[in-house]
Design a protein around this nucleic acid. Structure first.
Lengths: 324, 324
DNA sequence: TTGAAAGCGCTACCAT
DNA sequence: ATGGTAGCGCTTTCAA
């Protein structure tokens, strides 16, 4: 690999001068500049990023910590983050935490050791304290780690209300809910939204709610049980698309027609939701936008620009498809 | 951030000694070692990876270049790569190339500038020459860039034969093919496999083949047209799951019953394929395993261990589900 | 068994 | 306008 020294030597100047043209900083005579630029071109010289990082204490890299890139909306989020980062001149290191605190801490440590400029994280387990210690900007996505920390979330409760109300308007009279994992804030919020709409109906009781653990398989089993217990159910609001798809499968097994006998609404708007048959009516989150905003905000934070807003609660939208 | 100097000073030794205990290399007196280790613990000192990288010319990082992390099997592949890399002590930088040569070259350049130890790449456009220049190990996945380069692929043709033959055995008498993008090797191979099985049947003609461009939307349109042109079709082999799902949707639109009137087989075995209704019969690739093998092989290459094999052609398996 | 110091490739300060 | 050089935090050679 050719280094700045080689360029300097061949150009008959000092490394300082080469550095100046590299960074477009400080005075350089026109002719020397040209000579150096030509040389850089010829040698196809690219400055060593690691050496730069060591000096700058920044590696032009950001860390992205997600529970599992295979799950629901993380591929799209990752894509948005990587796209935006690339545009702004950063690379992204992908980390799968499995929501495991130990792994998370390990990743946080090595990201810090690698001088990443900032971190985007989606986690329920990470604490504000862990983040404070890091001393680099962190933005939290999809989950609110603590007040004050830069955060991008969506209108979970509002979305749930929209979904449930929509089922009601469609004429559903017994609306069940497949809720997300215990202890996860957005699962809680979606549950609350559901309850706000039907909680005071005289038919309502807690047994219309099952836990699908944000997972398709669990949801199938839960739905089967739910429909056995309450065959009168004619509407289901699932707290994410995966579980809604599970519900579709369960209904299919029981030979229940969707949407004729049973309407189903999901939450997330993942690619999958448009690929099922029938296609899923769902509350779609602006996933790509979330990634964009998070990354842009992170970069602003990193560059210590002043930020107008560090808390975004993005709106969600009901997209009606074939399952209702 | 506390540095090796701080540790050395507090321990009353030189940085060299601290470095020795850090790397478990060279002689260190037992008592000094203990003192230093205790100090490291207390200070929660973590060595600066960037400084290390600069010296070692290796950053304990590998690059992963895929066309688009949102597409078909890349999330699972990325997961496998990251898991394996993490276990072996490496981070992974994610790059989305969109199969765009310029982007690819840019990524290759910055990965090299960042001293990544190796690169895993899935691309049709990258050339052997580009890789040679890099001078770091590269393994190619899903596509064969050139003979001699470490490669992981699957039995595309064989899988296609299995799929098509399976449809025949199921009693299908007019089997169509939705092929993948032009110029993509695996699309070609799958097409060949299909043709090997039905190409000599007397009913066969080229008009039973349409191009779905490895994309769901395109596939829907193509299937619609296909079924209009040849209403007698009772079996479809699609070159990937996304297109097979498109075919399901098209059939659904035309009110054609699957599998009663039409059987469909896909290729890939992505998560999606088990989420549709009806669930898709497909040729599943060992995606996770491909990622594992690629990463392990890459690390061996990086560490200059001797490699038994640099070319893997993994077997695929037909998984029968509801679409046939 | 330990320390001093060179050097990895670059940037930025201070001279000139 | 340009050069010399310290220093970023670490590893490794050479001496002691």
């Amino acid at each position: 690999m050719t280094s700045i020294k080689d360029v300097a030597k061949l150009a008959g100047v000092s490394v300082a001068t080469v550095s100046r043209v590299l960074n477009n900083k400080g005075y350089v005579g026109v002719s020397t500049r040209e000579k150096i630029e030509k040389l850089i071109e010829e040698l196809n010289y690219k400055p060593n990023e690691v050496a730069r990082s060591l000096f700058k204490k920044q590696s032009n890299t950001i860390g992205l910590i997600v529970p599992d890139i295979m799950n629901s909306f993380f591929p799209e989020l990752a894509r948005a983050v990587e796209d935006t980062a690339a545009t702004l001149g950063f690379n992204v290191i992908l980390c799968n935490s499995d929501e495991n605190s130990e792994k998370e801490q390990t990743y946080l440590d090595v990201l810090q050791q690698k001088y990443v400029n900032g971190i985007i994280v989606s986690s329920n387990t990470i604490t504000a304290e862990q983040i404070q210690k890091l001393n680099i900007p962190v933005v939290s996505i999809d989950r609110e780690i603590s007040k004050g920390l830069p955060t991008i979330v969506v209108e979970n409760k509002k979305g749930a209300i929209t979904a449930t109300q929509f089922l009601k308007n469609k004429g559903c009279t017994r609306i069940a809910h497949i809720r997300g994992s215990d202890g996860v804030v957005n699962a809680e919020e979606r549950y609350e939204g559901y309850k706000e709409v039907v909680g005071h109906d005289e038919w309502f009781e807690e047994s219309y709610i099952v836990n699908g653990n944000y997972d398709m398989r669990t949801s199938i089993a839960a739905t089967l049980e739910l429909l056995k217990r309450h065959p009168e159910i004619d509407g289901i609001f699932a707290a994410n698309d995966l579980m809604a798809i599970g519900a579709i499968k369960a209904a299919y097994q029981l030979d229940i027609k969707i949407p004729e006998q049973l309407s189903i609404v999901g939450f997330d708007g993942i690619t999958l939701s448009a690929a099922t048959t029938p296609e899923l009516t769902t509350i779609v989150q602006p996933i790509y936008e979330m990634g964009e905003i998070a990354t842009t905000m992170l970069v602003n934070l990193m560059e210590k620009k002043k930020i107008e807003k560090t808390y975004y609660k993005l709106d969600v939208e009901l997209v009606e498809r074939e399952s209702t």
